[in-house]
Amino acid sequence: MEHWKAVQGYAGMYQVSTSGNVRSLDRTIETSRGVKQRRQGVVLRPRINQEGYRKVTLYKQGRGERFYVAELVAKAFLDSEATHDRIIRADGDRVNDQIDNLTVKPSTTQAYASLLDEFDLLLTQHIELSPRQIRDIRRRYQTGLSIRRLALTYQVTENRIRNIIDKKEAQYIS
């Protein structure tokens, strides 16, 4: 079922659908000479640009602006901050602008915030090791067990295992 939503910045003038269609709405416009004209809404016919993507031109106050259809769909239904370079098509087809084919990569600020959240989570999950476990880690490393294996065994990071071995952590335990 095709659902329609207003195009961001063009409410009451244009709508975009989950199927990748864009339509103008019935409206009254004023020409440059001051004459009011009734315009009937129609489904717009996108043009294919040189790179193979569908684009439409939307008009507001007599000025036209071109938009990628996929970007309009993504902004209306997925992420209001979506940009063309962050849109991924599942099937790789540049003219398939249906909502179920589109995903939006997170922006750099969103990705950074996500990494910070993961880091905070790791810090809150700090595992306390007993002096006996620390001695055991050092002994097992001396007998040839790898840092990675030790990290997996004790459920800590490899960096923490290195710090224990180099006596940067728990230096008082021999």
Rank of each mutant, 00 (worst) to 15 (best):
Ala111Val: 01
Leu72Trp: 03
Asp97Ala: 04
Arg27Glu: 02
Val104His: 05
Gln50Thr: 06
Lys167Asn: 04
Gly12Asp: 03
Arg66Cys: 03
Ser146Gly: 02
Ile87His: 02
Val43Tyr: 09
Val95Met: 12
Phe77Arg: 06
Arg162Lys: 11
Arg140Asp: 11
Leu150Cys: 09
Gly64Tyr: 08
Gln37Thr: 11
Arg89Gly: 09
Lys75Ala: 06
Leu78Cys: 08
Thr108Lys: 10
Gly41Pro: 07
Asp26Tyr: 10
Gln155His: 13
Ser114Gln: 11
Arg86Val: 10
Ile87Cys: 03
Gln8Tyr: 09
Arg54Phe: 01
Gly62His: 08
Ile165Met: 12
Leu152Trp: 08
Gln125Trp: 00
Asn96Met: 11
Val73Leu: 05
Arg162Gly: 00
Gln40Lys: 15
Thr108Ile: 05
Val56Cys: 07
Gln155Ala: 14
Arg63Ile: 15
Gly144His: 03
Leu115Trp: 05
Lys167Glu: 13
Glu71Ser: 14
Ser19Ile: 00
Leu25Val: 04
Thr153Ala: 08
Gln37Glu: 15
Tyr14Lys: 08
Leu121Thr: 09
Arg86Ala: 08
Ser32Leu: 12
Arg39Asn: 10
Asn49Pro: 04
Arg45His: 06
Leu102Glu: 06
Ile87Trp: 00
Ser17Ala: 09
Phe119Asp: 01
Val156Glu: 05
Phe119Ile: 06
Gly62Val: 10
Gln133Ser: 09
Ser24Phe: 11
Leu115Thr: 07
Arg23Val: 07
Tyr141Ile: 00
Leu78Phe: 08
Gly52Ala: 03
Ile161Trp: 11
Thr103Cys: 02
Arg89Met: 13
Glu81Tyr: 11
Leu116Ala: 02
Leu25Asp: 04
